[in-house]
């Protein structure tokens, strides 16, 4: 399959001035600065095929943003190779800019006080698109993303979900082959997140747009990605499909019970079920889903207890990743 992103032995080190507190030290730093090296990306390699949807996840400071900045040509590596659509990002930056779209969660592209339509036309000019083709493309996107109703209202009047859909259009106007998204769902509510994910999947399906998304959000992982790359402390510690990811690393679910009374018809003794906390009228269980299904456990619980309320929670994403890292650390040791 055609590889649209190829990363080989990528390394990135940053030099920063050591800044100690205090006035004297500030003066010293001015005249005789001391530096320290920080390795942000440590010998990573991976490749992405055309049309794939990759989630690039990891804890804060893991090197996600640095990697994506190198892929888009914003930063250049200390060593290693990158090829994006057969271009070297930091060398052919402007050429690459025409082929990629970017959505950086922290930096909106739409002009806030003007209708989104104005930004779209501006982008049409920025990407030097042919007038006729641009119009056609714009109409196509507006219909597909269902924004016609509000695309002529000032952006500040739109809801977050509507704004997000317009942001997506802006990043897709020039029909990029790859869409890079850096934490796009940050601060969005449930509905907005859903709309964004639908739209991404749509573009991928219809135009084979390769999607490369960094995120902290478990939902992004499950609802968009078909592949996951986990990075921690600058290193890749997992690279595989989402299914493999969950099978391998998400091994429990939590059940929180509120009881109507503290009467139990029998003692709870199931293989794979651990009692984490128990109170007169509440019970917290950890269910190892590799050993027993949640359905089985609930059936049993309904028999034993008088249940007032029940909450089932998945193993939190942070924990999954931390778990992966733990395993990684063990492996190193």
């Amino acid at each position: 399959m055609e590889k649209i992103i190829e990363v080989k032995n990528l390394n990135k080190e940053f030099t920063s001035k050591i800044k100690l507190s205090g006035f004297r030290n500030s003066l010293k730093a001015l005249f005789k600065p001391e530096y320290q090296q920080m390795k942000a990306v440590d010998n990573i390699s991976f490749s992405v095929a055309k049309g794939e949807k990759v989630a690039f996840i990891g804890p804060n400071g893991a090197g996600k943003s640095t990697t994506i900045k190198m892929l888009t040509g914003i930063l250049y590596p200390s060593s290693g190779e990158i090829r994006v659509d057969n271009l070297v990002p930091w060398q052919d930056r402007k050429k690459l800019a025409f082929k990629i779209g970017t959505v950086f969660g922290q930096k909106p592209q739409l002009w806030y006080h003007l209708p989104a339509m104005d930004t779209f036309y501006l982008f049409g000019k920025i990407y030097e698109l042919d007038q006729a083709k641009f119009q056609k493309r714009l109409n196509f996107l507006i219909d597909k993303f269902q924004v016609r109703e509000f695309v002529n209202q000032p952006v500040r009047k739109l809801s977050l979900g509507q704004r997000m859909r317009c942001e997506m259009i802006a990043s897709l106007i020039h029909q990029p082959k790859i869409l890079f998204l850096d934490e796009p769902t940050i601060g969005l509510d449930v509905v907005a997140k859903q709309q964004l994910r639908e739209v991404l999947n749509l573009m991928n399906k219809e135009e084979e747009t390769t999607i490369f998304i960094t995120s902290h959000d478990a939902g992004d992982l499950e609802k968009i990605a078909d592949r996951v790359i986990v990075i921690d402390r600058g290193r890749v510690i997992f690279d595989g499909t989402v299914k493999n990811f969950k099978d391998k690393y998400a091994w429990y679910k939590l059940i929180d019970l509120e009881l109507a009374d503290n009467h139990a018809s029998e003692k709870l003794n199931l293989r794979g079920v651990k009692i984490l906390a128990q109170d007169k009228l509440s019970l917290k269980l950890e269910v190892d889903i590799k050993k027993i299904s949640v359905k089985e456990v609930i059936d049993k619980l309904l028999n034993i207890y008088q249940i007032a309320d029940i909450t089932i929670a998945e193993m939190p994403m942070e924990e999954i990743i931390a778990n992966i890292y733990e395993q990684n650390l063990q492996k190193i040791k």
């Binding site: 507190s21 205090g22 006035f23 500030s26 003066l27 001015l30």
Partner: peptide, 8 residues
């Protein structure tokens, strides 16, 4: 004063 230099 935490950012002494900037303050001065």
């Amino acid at each position: 004063m935490e950012f002494r230099f900037n303050f001065f």
